[in-house]
Write a protein that binds this DNA or RNA. Structure first.
Lengths: 145, 145
DNA sequence: TATTGTTATACTCTATAACTATA
DNA sequence: TATAGTTATAGAGTATAACAATA
């Protein structure tokens, strides 16, 4: 929906437009960062949620991430393919799969978090440390509603 | 690439993630705002550029917006269909079309700018007026690189 | 009858490449 | 030979709906 081209001066008066364009750029850069591992931002998000909720079901992941059920199948298939996560049997409901990170998944997530942190600093390198903190705080406030 | 679901707490530590999610939300809301007019954000962007550069060629629009040439054809087709813009002959190059807003296009753009401004205030309603200005200034600084 | 996970399919969006008419 | 605009097509990404197993 939004181009990768220049940000036209005539549109910078709208903070929502800047948010959209910078968000798109940020997503593109993050996808680039994950590409050597064969992963997409979505995998990072799902791994993060699994790390915080070990044994979560795919339905649970759908609710926590908003990624729909059929897409989630593919995401977890790929995480299993790379040996980063695994489906295990649910102790009491044979329909449900309990999802866990493997040791390798945990290590990979730790490494990717460091890379992601470094990317943040680069994306916001035009700002001073104090400005960066202010921006982060304001974005969190907007996100919280 | 990014879900419409909740923003997981575990990811709010990354300002780039917040930027991406809030930018997506902002784009979605803006698209919703234009929908009753049968327009998409892309049309608003192109109309804005035409207003600032009357008689611009489609190639010029491509360079200024980053929207590729074949997609631009459709955007201008639709603007013409709604009577908001028109292709005219270029005075010296018969290959080139000079694009102008119609009177109706100018009026529509003015009205949509007001709606867009109102949406900005709503999107950032969690912030005080002074915080909103700070956020806008910081986003502009990041955008400028 | 409802739910979990899965598969197959359709749909949207966008980019790519080929075509025309001019230069 | 190159460029502006156009058209047709193919690809990625995503949502929708149908299905099998289990509750």
């Amino acid at each position: 929906m939004w181009s990768n081209g220049p940000i036209p001066d005539e549109l910078t008066m709208f903070p929502g437009y800047l948010l959209t364009r910078l968000g798109h750029e940020s997503a593109r850069r993050f996808a680039e960062l994950l590409d050597p591992d064969g992963l997409h931002p979505r995998h990072f998000g799902v791994m993060t949620i699994i790390a915080a909720h070990p044994g979560v079901s795919q339905q649970g992941l759908r609710e926590l991430t908003g990624i729909d059920a059929s897409s989630m199948v593919g995401v977890i298939d790929e995480l299993e393919l790379f040996g980063l996560a695994e489906r295990r049997a649910h102790p009491s409901d044979r329909r449900t799969r309990a999802i866990f990170l493997t040791d390798r998944g945990t290590e990979t997530l730790t490494r990717l978090r460091l890379l992601a942190g470094a990317l943040q600093r680069e994306l916001f390198s035009a700002l001073s440390e104090s400005e960066r903190k202010t921006l982060h705080r304001l974005l969190q406030k907007v996100a919280a509603g």
